[in-house]
Nucleic acid binder design. Structure first.
Lengths: 240, 240
DNA sequence: TTCCACACGTGAAAC
DNA sequence: TGTTTCACGTGTGGA
């Protein structure tokens, strides 16, 4: 308690002291030590070096103090402790962010096609979440999305007659799975008639109706299965 | 690019240098300067002071480096810049946290009958947001429920082969339409394989896959059409 | 007294 | 070129 107050006071008074020194031109120490002559070039260089160094230290302390201000529950006022607490706090925020994100996805998926939602079919994530991803998780995004497996859990390709295939699959709930699926169909020159996505207990159940050009249905079936399975981790190919 | 790498290298090699010096007992500087005698108490005190100070600096640098690791998009490797970026990042996370919180509240309120809402959201935050859902349907609900027409706009019953019928219909967006549809199928002894509801511009597009007992498909088609049409206003029967 | 954290001035190194 | 950043050793003051 009083420890924190006191150390905080130290920070402030040190900053103030440095600033006043900066304003004073710190002539005091120079006169006291008598080392440097103002006329000598070395002395001038050293004096500039000294004052700039002093400013640097001052700035760094200000930053550190500002850092302390944005981090709650600071235990000690140590320089090292401040940074340590800041690190732990950021890690905590990261953890929480993931939790909340998962919660939002779950909430959203709980009612993917609600009566009131008239236009949220374009993506599986809400607008705000997507913008958030773009903003903060730059490196996370590059790591964890797009070229990662869709974690296929079940796949069923059925011929329904009339050159129509029904692709029904279950995968874990993650982003871009529908995009990848569409890319597969596009690469196979298959037209999507309609698609249905159902979110349930961390899984995505998808049913896609496919219109095929006249082709051998068995061959087409295998083509689709292999293409979708290829989306998955190649190390654990899905056996249908 | 190379700037960052180089500065990073500096950090590391400085740390290493300090550690090795620590192991060496930094006798080098002592011998070089010749200031301190190992036997003199002042020398020993200074050496301890020096090494502890060195450790302190080292620890602080390590912390700073660790802080840099948890903050994405670090621009410069400056000590001051690292702290500055960390501050801005934390502030950004705070901002985002508020937004996401608001979004969660909105989502939760938007879907009171969600799968995951085992709580009492339906009664808790009602007024403002229940208006969202119920405000529009409230009077419809009380006035036009149950025995009122579903306002059928379009109906298409198609035979898909394998005793499977696809019923596709469009009606105005109001409650209980799906219930009535299900009642129709039940009355005709038809099994629903899967159903898809799409909300779009005030209308409900429904696609229902029906499994029929072996029966004449044309007759069944007409049966379904008439039964569903009967749900509509008898004054304006839907002609398909 | 020792211990700990700090600010300071300084020379060097990088741009 | 000088400007900036850094680690270092040192002195100081509080526990």
């Amino acid at each position: 308690m009083e420890n924190i107050d006191e150390e905080c006071k130290h920070f402030l008074e040190n900053s103030m002291f440095l600033q006043t020194q900066e304003l004073d031109g710190w002539g005091f120490d120079e006169a006291l030590s008598g080392y440097y002559d103002s006329s000598s070039p070395d002395g001038a260089a050293s004096s500039k070096n000294i004052v700039s160094e002093r400013n640097r230290r001052n700035k760094l302390n200000q930053r550190l103090f500002a850092l302390r201000a944005v981090v709650p529950n600071i235990s000690k006022m140590d320089k090292a402790s401040i940074i340590k607490d800041a690190i732990e706090y950021i890690e905590h925020l990261h953890e929480q962010e993931k939790k909340i994100e998962a919660e939002i996805v779950e909430l959203e998926s709980g009612m993917p096609n609600s009566i009131n939602s008239s236009y949220d079919f374009d993506q599986e994530l809400p607008v705000l979440l997507r913008s958030k991803k773009k903003r903060t998780d730059h490196l996370y995004d590059s790591v964890s999305s797009r070229n990662y497996p869709i974690e296929l859990l079940e796949l069923r390709v059925t011929y329904m007659g009339d050159n129509t295939m029904v692709v029904s699959l279950t995968c874990s709930k993650r982003t871009d799975t529908m995009v990848k699926l569409c890319e597969v169909f596009e690469s196979l020159n298959l037209k999507i008639i309609t698609a249905n996505i159902t979110c349930f207990s961390g899984r995505l159940l998808k049913t896609v109706f496919i219109q095929a050009n006249e082709e051998d249905k068995d061959l087409l079936q295998i083509k689709i299965q292999t293409a979708i399975t290829a989306l998955n981790d190649p190390l654990s190919p899905m056996s249908i």
